[in-house]
Write a protein that binds this DNA or RNA. Sequence first.
DNA 1: AAACGCGCCAACCGCGCAACA
DNA 2: TTGTTGCGCGGTTGGCGCGTT
Length: 323
Amino acid sequence: MGRSPCCDKLGLKKGPWTQEEDQKLLAYIEEHGHGSWRSLPEKAGLHRCGKSCRLRWTNYLRPDIKRGKFNLQEEQTIIQLHALLGNRWSAIATHLPKRTDNEIKNYWNTHLKKRLVKMGIDPVTHKPKNETPLSSLGLTKNAAILSHMAQWESARLEAEARLARESKLLHYQTKPSSHHHHHGFTHKTLLTTWTSKTSQDQQQQLESPTSTVSFSEMKEPLAAKTEFVGSSTCLNLIKEPDQNDWISSTIHEFETTEMAGGVDEGFTGVMLAGDSLGRSLSDEKHETVKERSGGDCSNYYEEDNKNYLDSIFSFVDPSPPMF
DNA sequence: AAACGCGCCAACCGCGCAACA
DNA sequence: TTGTTGCGCGGTTGGCGCGTT
């Protein structure tokens, strides 16, 4: 399209924000809400473009954001959700209370990604880098089902993210000065409604008006998940999502499948399942993985697979995220 | 003390999408 | 149907601070 950058207009400031600018923006939003970002800078007396103001607000000034070090639980959440969702930072952020997508993205790029690489894990696929073609072919039904779950979780997160955005928008557009008292209510309420509906009407849930996910959109994420589980066979199991029994059959399949053994090895979820990232994959264990990756490793991975499934299910569990 | 390299992170940029005229 | 506008997302960049030489 070639749209010109919004800050091209002469006189609009770029770069780091000053304290004075922050105060102006904060004061304006506290008083009036942000409404239209495009018109906000002029009204607030700022020589910035609306986009710059929005970024400053969402990533820094918003009162409901937490800054500083990520704790272990947050790290695990990021890694596991990244394994499920890839670089969909906004979706990941919906599961990390008070963290912005930008902050999570930065933390991933500067810390977690490097740590995984150090551990010999591919940060894109979340599998050991030295995985052999043979082990890639060792695909199982559980891996395929995980792909289902990942797909489903992806859709759910999309919906949640949308709800979160909408409720925030509504909030700051309508009641700009009351956020301290009301923030959080809309998310939780709406999500509870959404997720309880989930169990009642699975078909309707897929068609929920709150979700922007179309299944044409899902094709790409699906491909990513397929890659993630290293499965080609899973494609055979994936039905058209508009089929009524898609979710229930997935869950049923999962429930009736032997959990132990067979899931493709190397997920970071396995590595991270019970302990801190630093300790969960000791060098010794890592070496063992390397040694065994080319051979018959079903026994070895039996326990880890279960841990991995547990950890993934902790996310797939349709309880509303914390806000 | 100065120069250099590197890590971190706030901010920018470009694109896609939805809403609307 | 098409063009425009506004917003949000994800990738990237640039500047600052800190450690090392």
